[in-house]
Write a protein that binds this DNA or RNA. Structure first.
Length: 846
DNA sequence: CTAGGGTTAG
């Protein structure tokens, strides 16, 4: 038949359908003949062949045009639910409708519409509905629920609304079942207000009415409304009791709420209510507990109801995978197979994902084999998981083989490939694939933006973010903003940081712990510890990372005391500190010159908190002692280390020697570094600095020679300053800036104000005049001068430097801040200097 | 006749 696709309905304006059938429907003819066949014999037909045989025997008896018999045959055939049985049903239907005159009733239509709807062939169901209406056959109270169910499944909003019109016109709007179907349809289409309107107007409600409404809220992320409505149902005068379906809906709402307390409340209710607990409910409960961090409760239920239940195991495994507990996930699935249960495609999704996370190619391949043997590869989700596995296990060819063969590549398939490239560090390939994607969603953008941030291409990341809003109209989410916040923090651009925060607020993006932590980091890296801490204070729950970010913020700002306070507050609140927190706290002590407190914290790590100090912690202590001038003690600590001291630790000591001017120990430390990490340029530079300050030019020359021999070059120091959204970069002695003449005039002006250059900062053995000149052209000074001439009076000047600030530039900045009454915020490679009124937050200690 | 959990990519 030339199918009247549901598209026909879709394109009709709302009134056409109802007006085209303005002639009154004929009443359904009453079938007075008793059915010549027994329905019991039809029930025995379990296969399509048996049904076909049955059909032939009807024909022999001359009953193949009997409406009742044919309707029953079609109905049974639909019940079998296979593609074959449905098309057989259609054949019988078409043949009978064309030949018979007695098909003026809706029964045969109902059967077939129901069959299509329940097998997900919604377009077929709806076109049949339309054909029936056009033929002037009245739908009855059974037809509407089938039709609406099809609309709900296929999100055919407009068709459903037209059916609603028809329901009103034909006066079925008061029927309980029809109303329930309407509630479900509107809820499923996301029109929750409409669903609620129908629900509220109902004079009588049964358990399905309530369940449909609750489920509607639960599925659309209105978990709170779902739970509220459930408790309202308990109190209502409708006198309905929840059944297992209701409970499954409520439980899934609780899972989304992620609130363990509500979970317990609901579980208590179930135990006391006498609702029969079925398998689906247990699976839902386990899922709920896992999503609300009630792993123990979930595990208890799992143990209680047995590891041989497919749905239960799937719920358990998928949650383990989500939490990265892949060993546990595979354990659950293995145990399940051990009790003779075959994994289904959902199980395999968890299994393959576990292999990807573990980079276990061997098991991944065996999963692939199982997939092929069971015909699961026709499901695109399984293919996506396999592509991910092969990409993560560096088997690009195998991944592409699957990708190329996929009949239905979805946006997820493409995203998986892009993410795979990123995983292997191939940003260019990821970018090319990204550009070639036929369709992009928020995950696509997040993947590529995250990749750029990881590759330290921060400006590019921000640029892509801008084009995402411009071109695609895709809305950024929390994950996007985490990447952008990170990029912004690395750029050190406060204006951009403020804009990022504004953007989040304006677009109503929820600031959860993760995003909050990123924002704390962003603001502290941009030299705005105040904003960083106010974000931290606003977080409703804080994990260890959040506390660490706050402590790091205080460390960078040089506020050691506040950092230590935060550490104790965190411990008081029952958080278990980890190694990373201690790095932050010790760094804070180091920057703040808090020697005694630092020693106490270091000592408490293992003794009180059971965290054994790693080399980084020793590094912090060496740094702390060294900066405080306790070089001997620092050296002793290095020698007492239980592990081999690495180059970073020796470098801390060397840096301290540079500040303290201890030439002998500096030489010793540098020697160690050259053994451990000969390519480490910084140590040569530091050592020659030490010699230079001591005026030992022969030694300076030797160091420079040995650098040259090894082909090492000093990494250039760069200073960045943002003026009106544009980044200007200055390197030492760089004269290429278009405003260079004005900058030089500014520099001269400051020099004349009485800046006494500290010539010990010059590495070269040149005459004093030359030294003076070289010093005056350090990148920081150029940036500062440029900042002074190109920004408004009284505004803060912010400079980002990639290396440690030299002491001459530091005192230059202090002078400038006093004379021009400006705050100067100078970020170096690991901390901030807030310089105002001639004083620096670091107390000249860095 | 109407209502149901578990689904890969960042």
């Amino acid at each position: 038949m030339a199918t009247l696709g549901s598209g026909v309905v879709l394109h009709l304006p709302p009134m056409v359908l109802t007006s085209s059938i303005s002639k009154p429907f004929l009443p359904n003819p009453i079938d007075r003949t008793k059915s010549p066949i027994k329905s019991s014999s039809l029930k025995d037909c379990k296969t399509i062949d048996e049904l076909k045989m049955f059909h032939r025997s009807l024909a022999k008896q001359g009953l193949d045009s009997d409406a009742s018999s044919i309707t029953k045959l079609v109905s049974r055939s639909c019940e079998l639910g296979t593609r074959e049985s449905l098309s057989f049903a259609r054949e019988v239907f078409d043949h009978s409708v064309e030949n018979g005159q007695s098909y003026r009733s809706c029964f045969i239509y109902n059967s077939l519409i129901r069959g299509y709807a329940s097998s997900g062939l919604c377009d077929e169901a709806l076109s049949l509905f339309l054909r029936m209406v056009i033929a002037g056959i009245s739908p009855d109270k059974y037809t509407f629920p089938f039709g609406l169910s099809a609309c709900a499944k296929s999100r055919a909003n407009r068709d459903g609304i037209q059916i609603h019109g028809l329901i009103v016109k034909m006066d079925y709007a008061g029927d309980l079942f029809v109303q329930n179907s309407l509630v479900h349809f509107y809820a499923e289409c996301g029109e929750l207000d409409c669903a609620r309107k129908v629900f509220d107007k109902m004079l009588e409600r049964n358990v399905v009415s309530w369940t449909s409404m609750i489920c509607g809220y639960a599925r659309r992320d209105f978990a709170k409304d779902a739970v509220d409505l459930f408790f309202q149902m308990m109190r209502s005068s409708d006198g309905v009791k929840p059944n297992s379906v209701t409970m499954v809906c409520v439980i899934s709402a609780c899972a989304k709420l992620e609130d363990l307390e509500t979970c317990e409340k609901v579980y208590d209710f179930i135990r006391n209510s006498g609702v029969e607990v079925n398998d689906l409910m247990v699976s839902a409960l386990v899922d709920m507990y896992m999503k609300c961090n009630g792993d123990d409760a979930a595990r208890k239920l799992y143990d209680q109801y047995g590891g041989g239940n497919l749905d239960l195991c799937n719920a358990m495994a998928s949650n383990y995978v989500r939490k990265g507990l892949t060993k546990e996930a595979l354990g659950v699935l293995n145990l399940m197979m051990g009790s003779g249960v075959r994994p289904d495609r959902i199980s395999m999704l968890s299994a393959i994902s576990s292999c990807s996370q573990q980079r276990n190619l061997l098991w991944g391949k065996s999963c692939h084999g199982f997939v092929l043997r069971n015909g699961f590869e026709s499901w695109d989700n399984i293919c996506n998981a396999l592509i991910d596995m092969y990409m993560k296990c560096c088997r690009r060819d195998s991944a592409f083989k699957i990708f190329d063969r996929m009949l239905k590549k979805t946006v997820v398939s493409w995203n998986t490939v892009v993410a795979g490239y990123v995983e292997n560090g191939e940003v260019d390939a990821a970018w090319e694939t990204f550009k070639a994607m036929p369709e992009k969603n928020i995950v696509s953008w997040n993947t590529i933006i995250g990749a750029l941030v990881q590759a330290s291409m921060f400006e590019e990341a921000v640029e892509v973010f801008r084009s995402m809003q411009r071109e695609d109209g895709v809305d950024a989410d929390g994950v996007t903003m985490m990447s952008i916040a990170s990029a912004c923090g690395h750029l050190g651009a406060l204006d951009l940081a403020k804009w990022v925060y504004y953007y989040i607020e304006k677009n109503g993006i929820e600031i959860d712990v993760k995003l909050g932590t990123s924002l704390v980091d962003m603001f502290s890296r941009c030299g705005d510890p105040g904003s960083a801490m106010s974000i931290f204070d606003g977080l409703s729950n804080r994990d260890v990372s959040a506390w660490t970010a706050a402590i790091r913020a205080m460390a960078m700002a040089g506020n050691g005391n506040r950092a230590i306070e935060l550490l104790s507050e965190m411990i008081e609140q029952g958080m278990k500190p980890d190694g990373v927190v201690f790095v932050g706290a010790l760094t804070a002590c180091s920057h703040g010159g808090l020697v005694q407190q630092g020693k106490e914290i270091f000592d408490s790590m293992e003794r009180v908190h059971g965290v054994s100090p790693e080399d980084v912690h020793y590094g912090c202590m060496v740094d702390l002692l060294g900066r405080a001038g306790l070089l001997e003690e620092a050296l002793q600590l290095i020698e007492s280390m239980p592990m081999e001291p690495n180059d970073v630790i020796w470098n801390s000591l060397l840096a301290a020697c540079r500040v303290q001017g201890n030439v002998e120990m500096a030489a010793y430390a540098a020697e160690r570094i050259q053994v451990l990490a000969p390519e480490r340029t910084g140590s040569y530079v530091l050592l020659s600095n030490v010699y230079a300050s001591a005026g030992r030019w022969n030694d300076v020359a030797k160091v420079r020679m040995s650098m040259k021999e090894k082909g090492l070059r000093k990494s250039p120091g760069t200073s960045l300053i943002q003026i009106q959204g544009k980044t200007h970069e200055f390197t030492s002695g760089d004269e290429s800036h278009p405003e260079m003449l004005k900058i030089e005039a500014m520099l001269d002006e400051i020099s004349e104000l009485g800046h006494v250059p500290d010539l010990g900062n010059v590495l070269m053995d040149v005459d004093e005049e030359e030294k003076r000149f070289m010093l005056s052209r350090h990148g920081e000074k150029l940036a500062m001068a440029f900042g002074l001439i190109s920004s408004k009076k009284g505004t803060t000047i912010r400079i980002v430097k990639n290396l440690r600030v030299c002491s001459d530039c530091h005192s230059f900045a202090k002078l400038a801040s006093r004379v021009y009454n400006r705050e100067i915020v100078l970020r170096d490679n690991n901390r901030f200097h807030f310089i105002r009124h001639g004083k620096c937050s670091c107390n000249d200690f860095w």
